[in-house]
């Protein structure tokens, strides 16, 4: 359960006034008060042959080294860094992704895969945007999509695994960012677990990622899946779903969670508060608030 801030942007072309990462960090800085507990961001990278972004949460000291060792066994390492409670890795030549994910998750109770994807990378850390920046140098990133989240935990634990963005272990290259609470989480989770999905956190937002993966696997496209979610997810939410092909935004029928959008020929930016957009781009941009019960999709 999260009350929080969302802030991010999509560049539509190569006209970047400022680096994507620089803007998103500025946006998240101004959303700190909405979510002081942790900060995270999803970055979209260009497709390269056979490489896989793999991010892993852990809590206990020493388990980072175990994660890196295990990755070495399963894959060719392009790069790995251990951030004290988070392992960021880019790996190659993974023969069986499912086997690898299970192996990582089985290292210890506190270890779980945060996200994996050929193009999507999820980076998160406890505290505010400055901590995230210090760990991962987000401001160096200048790709197409960077969307972040600042979290104020309302019910579930404050740790990195419960931080957002959240993903589903049975679907790569999809991650979600959610502000609100899903009040039928327990029922949905039990239904999806019966269907064979694994949940890694006690955070209700995770069910959105699982829900979307399940719908995509059933043949719906992202827009259809998100439209269905408006009726099937209960509670309050503004959420964003990110895949290498699309970014989608959904708002529940009650209009309870804030979200504003600024769109130009060059970019789309969205944030819980327009202050974040102003701060990110360093200038006033005309923003609007999408209505409740709305799904918007941007093709990448």
């Amino acid at each position: 359960m999260n009350m929080c801030g969302i802030g991010g942007l999509i560049y539509k072309n190569s006209v970047h006034e400022k680096k994507t990462g620089e803007i998103v960090i500025k946006m998240l800085e101004s959303l700190c008060r909405r979510g002081p507990d942790s900060t995270g961001v999803a970055l979209l990278h260009p497709k390269t042959a056979d490489s896989l972004y793999m991010d892993v949460n852990y809590e206990k000291e020493g388990n980072g080294a175990k994660v890196i060792n295990l990755l070495t066994e399963f894959a060719t390492i392009v790069s790995t860094t251990d951030h004290g409670s988070y392992v960021r890795a880019l790996i190659k030549d993974v023969s069986d992704e499912e086997l690898l994910i299970n192996a990582v998750n089985n290292i210890d109770h506190d270890v779980s895969v945060s996200s994996y994807g050929e193009q999507l990378e999820v980076l998160k850390f406890l505290g505010g945007a400055e901590n995230l920046e210090r760990q991962f140098r987000i401001s160096d990133y200048d790709g197409k999509v960077a969307i972040g989240h600042t979290r104020m935990a309302t019910e579930s634990k404050v740790d990195i695994s419960h931080s957002q963005p959240l993903s589903c272990h049975q679907g790569k290259d999809l991650t979600i960012i959610h502000n609100g609470h899903i009040t039928n989480y327990i029922k949905l989770r039990s239904k999806f677990e019966k269907k064979g999905y694994h949940f890694i956190t006690g955070n209700d937002s995770e069910v959105i990622a699982v829900y979307l993966v399940d719908k995509l696997k059933s043949g719906y496209d992202l827009k259809e899946a998100m439209e269905l979610s408006l009726n099937e997810l209960d509670g309050s939410f503004s959420y964003i779903a990110i895949t290498p092909e699309n970014v989608g935004l959904a708002k529940e029928p009650f209009g309870m969670k804030p979200m504003v959008i600024a769109e130009t020929d060059d970019f789309v930016a969205f944030a819980s508060e327009s202050m974040a957009i102003t701060n990110g781009f360093g200038k006033n941009l005309s923003v609007f608030e999408p209505d409740s019960e709305e799904v918007m999709i941007w093709k990448l």
Binding site: F254, G255, V260, S274, S286, V287, F288, E289, D291
Partner: peptide, 26 residues
């Protein structure tokens, strides 16, 4: 002059509020 987000002029008791653009929920 532009748009307003949600809850514009909530519980307003008098006077005039004009939003030239659109306004959100509530």
């Amino acid at each position: 002059e532009g748009n307003a987000a949600s809850s514009t002029a909530a519980s307003m008791r008098g006077g005039t509020v004009v939003v030239k653009g659109s306004s959100g929920a509530r």
